[in-house]
Every structure is written in structure tokens, then in C-alpha cells.
Amino acid sequence: MDRKDFVKILTYIVTSARGCVEEPKIYGPFRLMDTASKMYYMLKDNGLIDDEEIEKIINNIDEKKFSCMTDEQEFISMMDEIIEDLVVVMEQDKE
């Protein structure tokens, strides 16, 4: 991951933060979830991660993240689901 990649994600995060001051409230969680996906693929493209289990979680985010605009409850449920999946991942790492 080089400077260019870092600046790209930094710009995205800071611009999102500024935008969230005026944007719909649900866009805050959406931008964070989108950032999670962008970060994963940035690391993957740079050969720093390639994990089937985590990629499955990221795919789930990408598949359902736009529901924040059409079905807020589905979006919230997706986040809860992801958190449960992450608990499993963390537990595995502990062992």
C-alpha cells in the first residue's frame, strides 16, 4: 500500500465526514460500511490480505449496503449480522 492509496482512502474518509454534517443521518453508517469494503479491497489489491472468510463478510456488506436508501431496517439488520460474523472471526483469532 503506497502513499497514493493512503491519500485516496484518507480523502474518501475526510470528505465523507464533512458531508455527513449535512447529509441524511443514515449516510454516516453507510459511509463507514463502504469504507470497510474499500479498505479490504485496497489491502487485497496490494497483496496484504486475501481471506475467504473476511471476503465473504465484505461481499455481504457490498450486496446489502445500498438498502440504506430503500429499506433502513434491512440495512441495520445487515450491520447486526456482520457484527455477529465478526465475533466469530475474532473468537477464531483468539485461539
Binding site: 485516496k8 470528505t15 463502504d34 445500498f66
Partner: peptide, 11 residues
């Protein structure tokens, strides 16, 4: 690329 970096809504 520059525009996209400053446009979180461009998905």
C-alpha cells in the same frame, strides 16, 4: 480519480 476521491456518493 480525483473527482471520485472527493465524491463519496459516486459509487
Amino acid at each position: 480519480e480525483k473527482i471520485k476521491a472527493f465524491s463519496p456518493g459516486l459509487l
